[in-house]
């Protein structure tokens, strides 16, 4: 990493208010300026929870109990709710999985971008309108002045996600969090949205935190990968390193479970069992019940340690 980090998350821990069962535990990673970090894991691994925790948008039932979220030198975890609100949209923005439900159905899409420009960037309304149309064009929407007046239901899924991206970029954030941005889209549209994100990353040096379970998306876009399992970081590595030589048994299993388009056809290898849920977490390493390499030492939680240059693994079997 040559430039300073935009985001440093350290020891982030969250729990359910009611049962005090932990969800995220000691999550630590960073994102450098212009870097794309993918957070991967199965459903229930805590990926989306991590995104919401960074945004300060955790559901009421969940609270952060420890850890810091340092964005551009300020610890968001130490700020009041109002101060975090003032940063949201300006310093960090987020796009969601379902662009249809994530857009207000009774508000014109142009207005949904303009409100960010007038209220967060303080542009006068005529300038905001021009800027919103420019942004719509920038995210690849044809005839942006016309589409400015459209309602979300009048647009295709891909266009809606482009609108979401335009609204997220409107306040010129340092960090964009994308939670499964292509999951709800058709395959061809997925590729277009990934292209758009790659362009934006290159052109405006946007730092991107990409939440996904799709390793194909990771290969397309990510510089580094954080593998999350049951709320803990299992492995952090540059994307190429992870694809070539993942060390954590869970990462390896995850890579083995994906279908391949090239090379010899082989059977898919599923990971037996399911991610434990909050409150039923095994003691020690949380992957132990599903791990073929488990030994007695796995009864205590493995620390994250170096397994190579810029490569961290939390596994007793990896030295």
């Amino acid at each position: 990493m040559t430039t300073g980090p935009v985001l440093v998350v350290d020891g982030l821990t969250t729990e359910l208010r009611r049962t005090t069962a932990t969800i995220l535990e000691g999550v630590t990673f960073s994102i450098a300026e212009g870097e794309t970090v993918a957070v991967v894991g199965e459903s229930g691994s805590g990926k989306s929870m991590l995104a919401l925790a960074v945004m300060g948008l955790l559901p009421r039932a969940i609270r952060r109990t420890a850890g810091s979220i340092v964005l551009g030198g300020t610890d968001l975890a130490a700020l009041s709710a109002g101060e975090v609100r003032a940063r949201r949209g300006r310093d960090l923005a987020m796009i969601f999985q379902e662009p249809l439900s994530a857009l207000n159905p009774v508000m014109r899409v142009g207005t949904q971008i303009v409100e960010v420009l007038t209220r967060r960037r303080g542009l006068p309304s005529h300038a905001a309108r021009a800027e919103a149309i420019r942004l719509l064009g920038r995210v690849g929407i044809a005839r942006p002045a016309e589409r400015f007046r459209a309602f979300p239901h009048e647009l295709s899924g891909g266009m809606r996600q482009r609108v979401m991206i335009a609204a997220a970029l409107a306040a010129q954030p340092r960090l964009l969090i994308a939670d499964e941005p292509t999951t709800a889209l058709d395959v061809t549209v997925q590729a277009q949205i990934l292209d758009l994100l790659r362009d934006l990353k290159r052109d405006i040096g946007l730092a991107l935190m990409l939440i996904t379970h799709d390793l194909g998306v990771v290969a397309e876009l990510a510089d580094r990968v954080v593998v999350l399992y049951a709320g803990r970081v299992a492995e952090i590595a540059p994307a190429t390193t992870l694809f070539d030589s993942a060390r954590h048994p869970y990462s390896r299993a995850l890579l083995a479970s994906r279908p391949r388009a090239h090379g010899p056809r082989s059977a898919l290898v599923p990971i037996e069992g399911a991610v434990p849920t909050a409150g039923t977490m095994p003691a020690g390493c949380r992957f132990r019940p599903r791990c073929s390499l488990a030994t007695v030492s796995c009864a205590s939680p493995p620390p994250l340690h170096a397994a190579g240059p810029d490569h961290l693994v939390a596994c007793w079997a990896v030295q």
Binding site: R85, G89, A93, M94, S101, L103, N104, P105, E115, R120
Partner: peptide
């Protein structure tokens, strides 16, 4: 609903 969370993510005021 999701779009209320989007509005929160934009950092809009509670009243807005």
């Amino acid at each position: 609903q999701d779009f209320v969370r989007t509005a929160e993510a934009k950092g809009l005021s509670r009243s807005r």
